[in-house]
C-alpha cells in the first residue's frame, strides 16, 4: 500500500525533483559570488555556454556524459576567467548590469551562429533538440552532493574565511593580507564552472537547448533561489531552489495565477527575512527565546555574562 503510494508520488514528482537539483546547483553558483560580496547575474550565461558546448559534443562526437559535463564546465570556466578580469573591477549594481549584458551577448551569439559554412551549429532560435537524454536522477544527486562537499570544505579553510571577510569589509580584508582581487576571481570562476556543468546536465535532461531559456529571466530566477533561501551558508540556495521549484507544482489548482505565488513568496521573504530563510543568526535567536516569556533583547548578555 505505502510503497505503491510512494512510487506514485515519485513518478509524479521525479522530474520536479530533478529540476530542483539543477536549480540548487545554479543557486550555489550565484551563492559563491554573493558570498564574496559580488552581485553577479552571469550564471544563466555560463549555464548556456555549458549547455551548448556539452550538447554539441554529445551530438557530434558522441562523448560520454562525464566528458561533456567536464568540457561544458571548463568552457564556461575559461570564459568566466576572461570575463572576470575586466568586470570584477566593478561593484554593486554596476557589476550586475555588466553581467546582465554578458548574458545578452551570449544569448545573441547563440541565436546568430545558427550555421557556419553550411553546417548547423547552434540551430539559431530553434535551438538544438536532438540531444539524447543521458542525465539520470542519481547523476544530479551526486553532482549536488559533490558541490555540498566543496562548500563544506571551503567553509573550513582560510579560503572560506577570506570570502566572508571580503563580503563584510573588503578594505579591512585587504589590510589583513587578503588578496581581494584574486579571491573574487576565484569565486567568479567557481561560479562559472558550476553553472556550466549544471547547463550540460540540464541539456541532457530536457533533450533541448535554446538561447532564450538562459536569458534575463533565467538569470533573475537563479538570483531568487539565493535571495529566498539566503546566501550566508550553502544550504540557503538549495532550500530556495527546492521551494521555488516545487511550489508552482503544488499550486496547480491556482491555474493561470500560479506565477504570482512565487513573486508573493519572494516579497514576503525580502520584507520579513531579508537575509533569507536559512539565516543562522535569526534561527539562533528564535532558538534562544524558545519557551521563554518575552524578554529583553538577548544582545546585551555577552559583555557581562562571561566570567
Amino acid at each position: 500500500m505505502l510503497t505503491q503510494f510512494l512510487t506514485d508520488i515519485w513518478l509524479v514528482y521525479r522530474s520536479v525533483f530533478e529540476f530542483a537539483l539543477i536549480g540548487s546547483a545554479l543557486g550555489l553558483s550565484i551563492y559563491i559570488t554573493l558570498r564574496t560580496g559580488l552581485l553577479s547575474l552571469a550564471s544563466a550565461g555560463f549555464m548556456s555556454i555549458g549547455a551548448y558546448v556539452g550538447a554539441l559534443l554529445t551530438i557530434h562526437l558522441h562523448t560520454p556524459l562525464l566528458v561533456s559535463v567536464l568540457a561544458g564546465a571548463l568552457a564556461a570556466g575559461v570564459i568566466g576567467l576572461l570575463l572576470g578580469l575586466p568586470v570584477l573591477r566593478l561593484s554593486g549594481v554596476y557589476l550586475a548590469i555588466a553581467t546582465i549584458g554578458f548574458g545578452e551577448v551570449v544569448r545573441v551569439f547563440m541565436l546568430n551562429i545558427d550555421n557556419l559554412a553550411g553546417r548547423t551549429i547552434t540551430g539559431g532560435a530553434l535551438g538544438l533538440n536532438n540531444i539524447p537524454r543521458k542525465t539520470e536522477t542519481w547523476h544530479l544527486v551526486l553532482f549536488v552532493g559533490l558541490l555540498i562537499y566543496l562548500f563544506v570544505r571551503i567553509d573550513r579553510s582560510r579560503t572560506g574565511r577570506a570570502f566572508d571577510a571580503i563580503r563584510q569589509d573588503h578594505h579591512v580584508a585587504a589590510s589583513m593580507g587578503i588578496n581581494v582581487v584574486q579571491y573574487r576571481n576565484l569565486a567568479f570562476v567557481l561560479s562559472a564552472l558550476i553553472a556550466g556543468a549544471a547547463g550540460v546536465f540540464s541539456a541532457h535532461l530536457t533533450y533541448f537547448v535554446s538561447p532564450n531559456e538562459y536569458g534575463f529571466n533565467g538569470a533573475v530566477r537563479i538570483l531568487t533561489f539565493a535571495i529566498l533561501g539566503g546566501y550566508l551558508i550553502w544550504l540557503g540556495p538549495i532550500v530556495g531552489a527546492f521551494i521555488l521549484t516545487f511550489l508552482p507544482e503544488l499550486l496547480r489548482f491556482l491555474g493561470p495565477y500560479r506565477p504570482i505565488v512565487n513573486g508573493v513568496v519572494l516579497i514576503l521573504a525580502i520584507i520579513y527575512l531579508p537575509r533569507g530563510l536559512v539565516d543562522p543568526t535569526f534561527w539562533r535567536k528564535v532558538w534562544r527565546q524558545r519557551g521563554k516569556p518575552p524578554s529583553p533583547p538577548p544582545l546585551e548578555t555577552s559583555s557581562e555574562a562571561a566570567p
Partner: peptide
Amino acid sequence: LGRHTRTRSGM
C-alpha cells in the same frame, strides 16, 4: 582572519 598571512593551506 587576522592571522591570514601566517597560513598557507587553502581550498
